[in-house]
Design a protein around this nucleic acid. Structure first.
Lengths: 249, 249
DNA sequence: CTCTTAAGCGTATGTCATACGCAATTATCC
DNA sequence: GGATAATTGCGTATGACATACGCTTAAGAG
């Protein structure tokens, strides 16, 4: 309990465990203020617009003032990526794992889609932020009645997280591209492919194009595609749970 | 056939379909040269080191010369992300779909891991580069004997791509973090979590920590974790194929 | 041989993260 | 209560970056 472990800097920062100030001028900002302002800027103008100067302007302070609260921009990005995850939904108790995880994944996707810039922030380490861990906890809880051991649960949740991340990346960046240039997506895309794809070199793709799969308005529908892939993954989890229940590794 | 469709600029660029030059000074570079140099820089020093100036220096040219071949840095990044995918493996014919897709996904992951910076490049649209399409084609081909219709095949491959992307992002960025700061991962991580995680607020996570799952050296082993998640996903695909074979949507 | 066209490249602009040092302000100690 | 020490606020400076612009130069067309 009184184990004297030095907590890493990022951890104390994310959890707001900075030592109480003793002497000197009173801080006029808080780390939370700065994070909130940065998130506002990112939501409104995209991650590219988040510069130290821009965030400081949002707060009515000077650029360099921020560096008294945050060691670097990277640290600010770390804070932002935790702040973007507001608390997870309180799933009703007594759900079977599949319903629970489906709801969980959908909510996560929805939350992340409200802050699409999260995907662009590089991951710098294992999750340590309170909100990240909160979500993690809720997913683990949904797996409570499956009989999996703790390590397997972590594996499943990691896999699901991986999938949601990939999903988010594809869906947000494609839909951004779509918004910027709708022409490139609809029929244009199919036609351009048809022109360029040689059936000799790309036989399977040729068949798909011939079947008209890319003729629709948008070849990639976030909603549908996301549900489809998620369903596939959860089918896999179901099979895994059964295999474990049947007793072998 | 002689449909007069204007191909989008990126397409002609990626496929090397630029008009033949007529008059004027001979170009001393090619788009391929520039792309190759940029990839070299990214491989050796990371994507952050890829500046127009750095790439030009690599080629012994001046910065601004590159802009004669490439409209912007973003265009160069697009070229790089296609170039990073050398051709897909020629899968032996007659494999069942699962073996084929497993090999495919592993190869893709391996190729991408040799160019880890690919994950950091934003996706700007649906795949149009020749190498991207080549890989796509090979995955579709592996699904040839499943009886799925073309649209479903596309869905499955998209899902798998999504997963591999998420996988890659997690694994490369975490392992980079690990290389930079090994301390933060091993026991340190478990201990720090234990200090900060309140069993009241994070009951399920608390159990996992108590079970010692995070006590190992590295909580996230790319190899193992990747195979695990991939297996789950493919189990899901198997279930889906059976469902379709059984006749209902 | 001249003209047209496109390539090479120096310069300039504006944005960015961030190091550094000084001034302003506050809590503590005598 | 006045001195001291700590700590924030912020102006300035630096060096990297993408990229616009325009001049110079080379190569083919007539």
């Amino acid at each position: 309990m009184t184990d004297e472990i030095e907590l890493p800097g990022e951890v104390t920062l994310l959890w707001g465990l900075r030592e109480t100030v003793r002497r000197g001028r009173k801080p006029s900002l808080t780390v939370a203020d700065i994070t909130r302002a940065a998130v506002e800027v990112a939501d409104a103008e995209g991650l590219a617009a988040v510069s130290m100067a821009r965030v400081a302007a949002q707060l009515g302070n000077s650029t360099m003032a921020l560096y008294r609260y945050v060691k670097s921009k990277d640290e600010l990005l770390l804070l932002m990526s935790d702040a973007a995850l507001d608390g997870p939904p309180d799933l009703p108790d007594g759900l079977d794992w599949r319903t629970g995880l489906t709801l969980w994944a959908r909510s996560l996707l929805k939350v992340l889609q409200r802050h699409p810039w999260t995907v662009q922030i590089p991951i710098s380490g294992p999750p340590v932020g309170p909100n990240n861990l909160w979500w993690f906890d809720r997913a683990l809880r949904a797996l409570g009645d499956t009989g999996l051991d703790e390590e397997d649960k972590v594996g499943v949740v990691m896999g699901l997280l991986t999938f949601v991340h990939g999903e988010l990346r594809l869906s947000t960046e494609l839909s951004k591209g779509y918004a910027e240039n709708p022409e490139a997506f609809g029929r244009q895309y199919g036609k351009a492919l048809a022109r360029v794809v040689d059936a000799q070199r790309f036989p399977a793709l040729g068949k798909v194009i011939a079947a008209g799969v890319f003729e629709g308005e948008v070849p990639y529908d976030e909603e549908v595609e996301g549900e489809f892939g998620l369903g596939l993954f959860l089918d896999g989890v179901a099979a895994f749970i059964e295999r474990r229940a049947a007793g072998q590794g």
